[in-house]
């Protein structure tokens, strides 16, 4: 198996704080690998060790076949890192930043400028080429930051919380970019606090908390490990809800949850095939249902099941997009 990243018992301590406390990862080349965890989980610290910016206090890490400590220059030649916070010079213009990086990667003067413009165009930033980066919006900054990481095509790219604080449109743009990078053959390790993001982008996910990997797998596997899906039913008449909930609970042998909207009831189900029958019984009683959906549990539920606390507590912003009624 072709591993892009392999770590064994990776440790980093800051004083008494074991920020990364024995992380084992085996990440295959190609696609997106998601590292999911709340604030302070140790995501950035882990990435920094893999990108050779921090020296581990314990354990080993191999990136693209090179040891991150002993063969750091070889790692650096093939990976790129986009930090959690803007990692370009805010005083310089977008173009100057890219030219600077291109020159450092070994481009000649003219070629560096050409490459800079090419990237700005690809990232829809050509109009702001001559503006200082400090005048860029959050979304533009993120894009130019990523552009700076692909001046020379990296085999592996670290993206540390690329969409934190972005509006939905900018977030979608970053997602498009990530998909583009993967399409071009770059392996991506992405950290996020957003369950939805990991679910959308990542082929496999490691959930980390307090510096440890507490779960690993595809998002489907993670959900399956929680053991159930959920059915959501919205009744036409709020007055019917109690009755519907009772009927469903009886048929599906599950605890009904009455949602605060007054019309929705949610139940966990172990056997999705039983749902059709249960809804049939509701219809037979003449109770009207406006809408129902059957889905796997969300990653939020996975997080709750794994850590015993809801992920909302840690995520600073919700990612839900308001859909006007």
């Amino acid at each position: 198996m072709d591993l892009a990243i392999e770590t064994h018992g990776l440790v980093k301590t800051f004083g008494d704080n074991r920020a990364v406390d024995g992380v084992d990862l085996a990440i295959r080349a190609g696609g997106v690998y998601g590292v999911l965890g709340p604030n302070g989980a140790g995501k950035t610290t882990t990435i920094k060790m893999l990108a050779t910016l921090l020296v581990p206090d314990g354990g080993t890490a191999t990136v693209l076949g090179h040891d991150v400590v002993r063969e750091a220059p070889d790692v650096r030649a093939r990976v790129a890192m986009t930090g959690q916070f803007a990692s370009l010079d805010e005083d310089l213009t977008g173009l100057e930043n890219l030219v600077l990086l291109a020159r450092l990667y070994g481009y000649g003067k003219a070629a560096a400028k050409e490459r800079g413009m090419q990237l700005l165009e690809a990232f829809d930033l050509a109009e702001s080429a001559k503006k200082q980066v400090k005048a860029y919006s959050g979304g533009m900054r993120r894009r130019i930051d990523i552009a700076g990481s692909i001046v020379v095509r990296p085999d592996l790219m670290f993206l540390d919380e690329p969409t934190t604080g972005l509006d939905p449109r900018s977030r979608n743009q970053v997602w498009e970019i990530v998909r583009g990078l993967v399409g071009a053959g770059t392996t991506i390790l992405l950290t996020t606090q957003y369950l939805e993001e990991a679910d959308q982008l990542a082929d496999r996910i490691a959930v980390i908390d307090h510096g440890r990997v507490i779960a690993e797998g595809t998002s489907g596997e993670l959900k399956a490990s929680v053991g159930s899906g959920a059915v959501r039913v919205r009744v036409a008449d709020p007055g019917d809800r109690e009755e519907v909930a009772r009927l469903l609970a009886e048929t599906l042998a599950a605890e009904p949850v009455l949602e605060p909207d007054g019309t929705t009831v949610t139940l966990r189900v172990d056997d999705p095939t039983a749902v059709a029958g249960a809804l049939q019984r509701v219809g037979d009683r003449g109770l009207r249902v406006n809408e129902y959906s059957l889905g796997q549990p969300s990653l939020d539920e996975v997080f709750l099941a794994l850590t015993g606390r809801p992920a909302e507590e840690s995520a600073t912003e919700t990612q839900d997009q308001e859909v006007p009624a």
Partner: peptide
């Protein structure tokens, strides 16, 4: 569509010889 243009831009990336110490 950003993903398409990103793929194109990545495809166009050459890998020049590493910058030497003086030049960097």
């Amino acid at each position: 569509s950003l993903d398409a243009s990103v793929i194109a831009a990545l495809g166009a990336a050459e890998r020049p010889p590493r910058a030497n110490a003086v030049s960097s």
